[in-house]
Design a protein around this nucleic acid. Sequence first.
DNA 1: ATGACTCATGTTATAACATAACACAAGGCC
DNA 2: GGCCTTGTGTTATGTTATAACATGAGTCAT
Lengths: 160, 160
Amino acid sequence: MDHAITPTGQHDHAHCVSSALAAAEARCTGTAKLTQSRRRVLEIVWESHRPVGAYDILDRMAKDGNPAKPPTVYRALNFLLEQGLVHRLESMNAFIGCGSTSVDGHAAQFLICRDCNMALELDDPTLRKALDQAARNSGFRVDRRVVELSGVCADCQKAA
Amino acid sequence: MDHAITPTGQHDHAHCVSSALAAAEARCTGTAKLTQSRRRVLEIVWESHRPVGAYDILDRMAKDGNPAKPPTVYRALNFLLEQGLVHRLESMNAFIGCGSTSVDGHAAQFLICRDCNMALELDDPTLRKALDQAARNSGFRVDRRVVELSGVCADCQKAA
DNA sequence: ATGACTCATGTTATAACATAACACAAGGCC
DNA sequence: GGCCTTGTGTTATGTTATAACATGAGTCAT
């Protein structure tokens, strides 16, 4: 992403979506192709910076006139997860577009506002190192990191 | 807990359970009582240091001769979560006994071994501060922390 | 160009996880 | 006793996710 994303989403979202899609196209050039249904799911995920549930995506597709069944959506989501194009937020059973182009994108941390439901992706290498070091101190080798902090974002604090 | 817990559980587990139960009794002296069914669920959770699913608990209770329905178990689990006696591991939809007596016990971090399924609870204040600081840098106020690192524990690395 | 292979999709059914809503019981307490 | 709070029982249902099997669309070596 070459632009700032604020928690409230006061940004050029069309640009946001188009650059996400472009990045996805660029990444899926090999055997792993960004097919129609995968692209559609990715677009839906990127409609907001709020996490979206698999069944929300299904509803959205039904409204579109392209009704789908759960396996279709879960397959697309799993593909997008593998490609590092979306994240799964474990604490919400929901998905969000990956806003990082870094190699470590899937080591990201999330700040989830319980008021406005916005999820802000951090990609803080210091934090990642601190987490890995803590694990290493216990002899653990870390494969996967789930770091989800819930609370109230700056804007919602002001509003309250 | 006044004793070491190793990832492989090479410890005096009877002591482990009894001190967890004693701590629970001590905590639930006011209006929030540790009733029969709550105690039973807590005991089942403490049978191992592995996260246990709500429906595993139901199965366990059925085998005991005390069959229960899902709401019974979820109510007990919610009570135990409120009292800080168990944790929920979001990335596994499972529950584990809280091995911390500290005030910040619910800010814990977990190391989950994908081979032996053991979950080791860290309660690292440095890590907690680093996470809160990162959130604060984005203007977030943090209410709830989900930090779950999956990988391979020291013993399973040796075994492999 | 066809057979074999791989990858993606469609479809049905069901598994796994969690809660709503209502009825009832037990104990405190004025 | 009447009232209130807290906990439990029960039925039903909501929500999230996957298994299993059939079909189709493209590639590619022979």
